[in-house]
């Protein structure tokens, strides 16, 4: 494995955005960062700045107001980037499926790479999801490097 790919896998910085979840998943994401699960073992740092983040964690079904914010955040993130939908309502709307102001899943706004189930998603599931996401990141990273070589 190339050095750059390895470095990318070892340091996924995450950005967390709530698109209208019940807070259950948000606190579980925070719980994943705290001593019992300590996501910093994988180099995960919760960075508040979209320009410096690698993985966008989205919780909540997305609605008509925050979809523009979500799109903005996604566009501000530099490549290579990944999107993880955390929790059932980010995946498909789940319990909010008939709420009039929800879109039902964030994949209607931004492309989602990894879906993490659970209501609320547990820290274990989030960690599993990050591990899955990293495999995808490795692919993306290699593709990006090939592209750069071709460009030269």
């Amino acid at each position: 494995m190339k050095l750059m790919t390895k470095a990318r896998l070892k340091s996924p910085w995450v950005l967390h955005f709530d698109t209208g979840s019940c807070n259950g998943c948000d606190i579980e994401i925070l719980a994943a960062l705290t001593p019992k699960f300590d996501a910093e073992r994988f180099g995960i740092v919760n960075i508040g700045d979209p320009k410096q983040a690698d993985i966008l964690l989205i919780t909540g079904p997305a609605n008509h107001r925050n979809k523009t914010v979500l799109k903005n955040l996604y566009d501000q993130m530099p490549e290579p980037k990944l999107v993880m939908a955390i929790g059932e309502c980010a995946c498909s709307g789940a319990i909010f499926h008939n709420c009039p102001n929800t879109l039902g899943g964030v994949d209607k706004v931004v492309p989602v790479d990894v879906y993490v189930p659970g209501c609320a998603a547990r820290p274990e599931q989030i960690v599993d999801g990050v591990v899955l996401a990293l495999q995808k990141l490795a692919e993306k990273s290699e593709q990006l490097e090939k592209k750069e070589k071709k460009g030269e």
């Binding site: 709530d18 698109t19 209208g20 979840s21 019940c22 807070n23 259950g24 998943c25 948000d26 606190i27 909540g60 079904p61 609605n63 107001r65 925050n66 914010v69 309502c89 319990i95 909010f96 008939n98 709420c99 009039p100 102001n101 929800t102 209501c119 609320a120």
Partner: peptide, 28 residues
């Protein structure tokens, strides 16, 4: 930014299902 329209959905649902909807007004 997190308005979902839960009150409206609670009127559309069967009243027994609403327990689970109301639990998800707030996860904490």
């Amino acid at each position: 930014y997190v308005h979902r329209g839960i009150e409206r959905a609670a009127e559309l649902n069967d009243y027994k299902r609403n327990i689970y909807l109301c639990e998800r007004v707030c996860g904490i």
